[in-house]
Design a protein around this nucleic acid. Structure first.
Lengths: 153, 153
DNA sequence: AAAGAAGGTAAACATAGTTTACCAACAATG
DNA sequence: CATTGTTGGTAAACTATGTTTACCTTCTTT
């Protein structure tokens, strides 16, 4: 190993939970966008992922999506307009609920969302191969416990 | 539990690794910015975190930081200019290395970075309390193995 | 010496978000 | 039952943050 490589190599032992979560989360994020585009779902970019993510936006009101994504209703509404133009979803009137609207996937939207899930499952297979199925299951279980706790709120 | 609450509640079992990593990573990210600002390190915002994160930018060239952050050298250079104006760092000439420059924390920069680490350690204590020390250690160990693997590249 | 590569910087531009402002539908209240 | 307030949504102006394009300086190569 060269001196520069040794200097660049990072010490996992010193790493705190922030970086340990951030790095793989970002890598996954980028990969999903890349593979969606490659699979013919063009036009989808980073910001759109605030909509195309768990839990599914299908059947949900715009304001709720804005809150989930931690952004203003106006910003979310623009994203929705953009995704509508790209043919992934439609905003329909909610019957009997005042001015409320409801976001619905189009056929194309359903396909794109399914593709994203497919990519994620492939990533899970890779991780499972690297860590071993038992340890990967453990990892998911632990992260699930974090999610269910008040820590993430 | 009301009907609407039940509908909103999310099923951890169904969650894929993307959401399981993303949600806590984002929560931690926001909290660090909030607590840094509250501790008197004002002006620091989301984009600055591309610099203020592991591994430390201290002693590193701007181009390397750009690559680490996955952004253009120009965008990084602006961030660095902003952080320089805020008094957190300085770009100094690198001796005997052509046009190269080196990023150095100021006193204030060192203090802010130390504060961020302190917040992270507090978060780790909280997680450790929630999961139990053993399971939290396991979680970090597993994430460390992911980091060391080619999965994150 | 000339050409090219590496590192950095600057300005124009595009994108994506917030702020401000407004409209429509329903609920509550006198 | 008219007025007021609340909720949900939308539009436009503004702000920030990033990329693209272009250029400068220093060092290396030929």
């Amino acid at each position: 190993m060269s001196i520069s490589e040794e200097n660049l190599r990072v010490k996992t032992k010193d790493m705190l939970i922030g970086a340990l979560l951030r790095a793989p989360a970002e890598a996954i994020h980028r990969r999903i966008i890349r593979e969606l585009n490659a699979a013919g779902f063009e036009g989808l970019s980073q910001p759109h992922m605030a909509v195309f993510r768990y839990p599914s936006p299908d059947g949900v009101r715009p304001g709720v999506l804005a809150e989930r994504a931690g952004m203003s209703k106006q910003a979310m509404n623009r994203l929705l307009g953009s995704l509508e133009d790209l043919g992934y979803l439609a905003r329909t009137d909610a019957p009997d609920e005042g001015r409320a609207r409801i976001v619905r996937f189009t056929q194309r939207g359903h396909l794109a969302y399914a593709k994203a899930i497919e990519v994620l499952r492939e990533i899970e297979r890779e991780w499972s191969g690297e860590l071993g199925p038992k340890d990967f299951a453990r990892l998911k279980l632990l992260l699930g416990r974090v999610w269910e706790s008040p820590l993430v709120r």
